[in-house]
Design a binder for these strands. Structure first.
Lengths: 323, 323
DNA sequence: ATGTTTATTTGACTTTGTCAACTATATGGC
DNA sequence: GCCATATAGTTGACAAAGTCAAATAAACAT
C-alpha cells in the first residue's frame, strides 16, 4: 500500500505530461478533415479482422450513436462499405474501400512524420529507451497482463558469468549480509569453470525475464557419473512463480539423461528456501562446516543426491514432485 | 533513420494504447461537475506560482476564449479569485480560494483512487517498472532533455564486481571477439583483488547512468609509490561524452594525491581509443607480448606512467589535457 | 505621441459527444 | 414453433466542448 502511494504521484505526473504530448500530436492530425475519434475508427476498421460496430464500441469506448453517425459519414465519403454478417443479421462487417485505405495510409504517414519529428533530435540511446519503456508500460497495464516474457536458455553467452556473479554478490549481501569477499569467492568459482569450460561437461540454465537474467542453475564438472550442481539462484522479484522448481527440474532431468549417478552441491544454512527444494528433490546433507570468511558467521553444507544406484524411491518421488 | 523507422510503430502503438488508458481515467473524472479541461486548469492554478491566463494558455494549449469562460465560471462558483497584476495591468494573477483548494484536493483524492485502482492488482515489480518507465519517457521527451543522470561514485558495493565482469565479457566479445576464457580471466583479476580488498589500497570509480553502471576505472595494489590502473572501460552507448576522460582524470589525480609515482596498466592492442587516452595522459609502452588464449590472436601491452620523478613535462601536459 | 504588440474578453458558431427511444435480429426456455 | 429477453445498430433531440474573429485595454518601441 505504501509502495502504491509513493508511485501514484509519478504516474499522475506522467499522465498530465503525456496528455499534453498526445494533445500536440492530435492537433496536427486535426488539420485533416477527420476528428480524432474518426481517425481511430478508421484505423481500427483497417486493422481489425472482421470488424463490426460492436467491436469498435468496446475497443474505443465510443458512444454507439456517435459511432453510427461516423460510419454513415465514412460511407457517404466512400471510405468504407459494409456487408451484413452472415452469422448475425443485426451486425455488418466493416471494410475499407480502396479510397479508405489510401486515406488511412496518408494519415499513417502523417502520423509517422509527427512521431519522427518528436524523437528526431534525441540520441539513439534515448529513442531506444523511450520505446522500451513504452512497451513495458503497455505490457504491464494491458488487460491480461502477460507478465514478463520468461524463458530459460542453456547456452552460456559472453557476459553471463559476470551477470551471475553480480546477482550472487547483490542478493547474498541483501539477504545474508555477506561482503565483497563472498563475491570474490564466486569470481573464483567462475574463473575455475570458464578457463576449461566445455558445453559437454558444463551446462548452464539461465532464466530470463524480458532478456534480463533473473535466475540460474548449472551442472558442472561431470565425469565418471558424478557432477556438481552450482549457482542455483533466483532474483527475489521472481520467486514464487515456480521458476526455481523448473530450473532444478531441468538440471536433474539433464543429469538423469546424461547418466549421472551422483550429484553434489554446496550451500550455506542461510539458504532455507533452496535447501527445502534440494530436500524435496531427494538431496541429503553429508557434511557441514563453519565459515567466517564472508563478513558474517555461517555454516556451509554439502548435499548429495544419488540418482540411479542410490535410492529408487527418492528418485521417483523427485520426479513426481518436480514435474 | 532506420532506427527511428523501427521505433515509430512501437510509439504509435503505445499512443493508441495510452489514449485509451487516459480516456478511461478521464471518464470517471467526468462524473464530477468539471470537464477535463477545467480540471487541468484548476490543477495548474493550484500548483503554478503567480499563475496568469497567458501561462495556462501556453501550458495547456487551450483556446484563450474558452479559458476565459472557464475562469469566469470558476469565479462564479467561488473556486478562484483574481488580483490584477502590478507588473502588467492587462493580466491578473489567479489564485484558488479556500473552496477551490478543497475542490482540488477532493479531485486529487479521486484521481489517486483511480490510479491506485489501475495498478492495484499488479505485482510490486510491475508497479515499480511502470513508474520507472514513465519517468524515463517523461525525462527523455521533456523540452530540455536532461539526458540520463550520470554520476561517478567510488565506493565498491556488493554486485559491482560482477557487473564489471559482465560488462567486460560482453563488450570485449562484441568488439574484439574474445570468448568466455577472457571473461574467466577477468573473474580471476577480481578474485585476486576482492579477497584482500581494502579501500585504502584499492580504489574504484564507477560511472553510473540512472543507477546503472556504464563505465569504470580502478587503482589497485598501491604500495611503495607504485600501483596498477585497471578495468578502464566504457559502455559503447556512453562514449564520446567525455566520461572516459573524466574517469581517467579521477584515477590519475588520485594517484598524484596519494603520492604514487609509478602507475602501470595492461591492455590489448585492440583498445585503440583507450590506448589513445593513455598516451595523451603520458603513459608509455614498456612491453608487449602475444596472447592466444581468448579465442582470437591479440597483442597484450604494458604501459607505464611516471608521475613525479619521471618527466615533469608529461605530467603537466597531462594535467592540462585531462582537466 | 503614435503605431504596434500583447493579454484578455465577448458573441457567434461548429464540432463533438450523450441520452433515450426505437427497430430488427438473436437467444434460451418451454 | 413461440415467447420473453437480450443484443446490434439507428435516429432525433440535446448538451457540452471547443473554435474563430472582432473588440478592448494595457504595454511597448520608436
Amino acid at each position: 500500500m505504501s509502495l502504491e502511494t509513493s508511485l501514484i504521484p509519478i504516474i499522475r505526473k506522467f499522465n498530465r505530461f503525456y496528455t499534453n504530448v498526445l494533445g500536440l500530436l492530435d492537433k496536427h492530425l486535426l488539420d485533416s478533415d477527420f476528428s480524432l475519434s474518426e481517425v481511430r475508427v478508421l484505423y481500427e476498421i483497417g486493422h481489425a479482422d472482421r470488424c463490426t460496430a460492436k467491436m469498435l464500441i468496446d475497443l474505443l469506448k465510443i458512444d454507439a450513436g456517435y459511432l453510427s453517425r461516423i460510419l454513415k459519414r465514412f460511407e457517404k465519403l466512400g471510405l468504407t462499405y459494409r456487408v451484413q454478417s452472415e452469422a448475425d443479421g443485426r451486425s455488418s462487417l466493416l471494410y475499407l474501400s480502396k479510397l479508405g485505405e489510401e486515406t488511412l495510409s496518408t494519415m499513417n504517414a502523417l502520423s509517422d512524420v509527427q512521431i519522427r519529428h518528436m524523437i528526431a533530435g534525441l540520441p539513439e540511446r534515448s529513442q531506444k529507451s523511450i520505446a522500451a519503456s513504452m512497451s513495458t508500460i503497455e505490457r504491464e497495464l494491458s488487460d491480461h497482463p502477460s507478465g514478463p516474457d520468461i524463458r530459460i536458455r542453456s547456452e552460456l553467452q559472453p557476459g553471463d558469468a559476470g551477470m551471475l556473479i553480480h546477482m550472487h554478490g547483490w542478493i547474498y549481501a541483501q539477504e545474508c549480509g555477506y561482503n565483497h569477499v563472498f563475491e570474490g569467492y564466486v569470481c573464483k568459482t567462475f574463473y575455475d569453470v570458464l578457463l576449461t569450460y566445455s558445453p559437454d561437461r558444463d551446462r548452464f540454465w539461465l532464466a530470463e525475464a524480458d532478456g534480463q537474467i533473473v535466475g540460474s542453475i548449472a551442472i558442472i564438472g561431470q565425469s565418471e557419473g558424478k557432477a556438481q550442481l552450482r549457482w542455483f539462484m533466483l532474483h527475489p522479484d521472481y520467486r514464487g512463480l515456480g521458476l526455481g522448481k523448473k530450473l532444478l527440474h531441468e538440471a536433474i532431468s539433464y543429469c538423469r539423461a546424461r547418466n549421472i549417478r551422483q550429484l553434489f552441491l554446496e550451500t550455506t544454512q542461510d539458504q532455507k528456501t533452496a535447501i527445502g527444494m534440494y530436500a524435496k528433490a531427494g538431496f541429503q546433507k553429508v557434511a557441514e562446516r563453519e565459515n567466517q570468511a564472508w563478513g558474517i558467521r555461517n555454516i556451509e553444507e554439502t548435499y548429495e543426491l544419488h540418482l540411479h544406484g542410490g535410492s529408487p524411491h527418492e528418485a521417483s518421488a523427485t520426479n513426481a514432485e518436480l514435474t
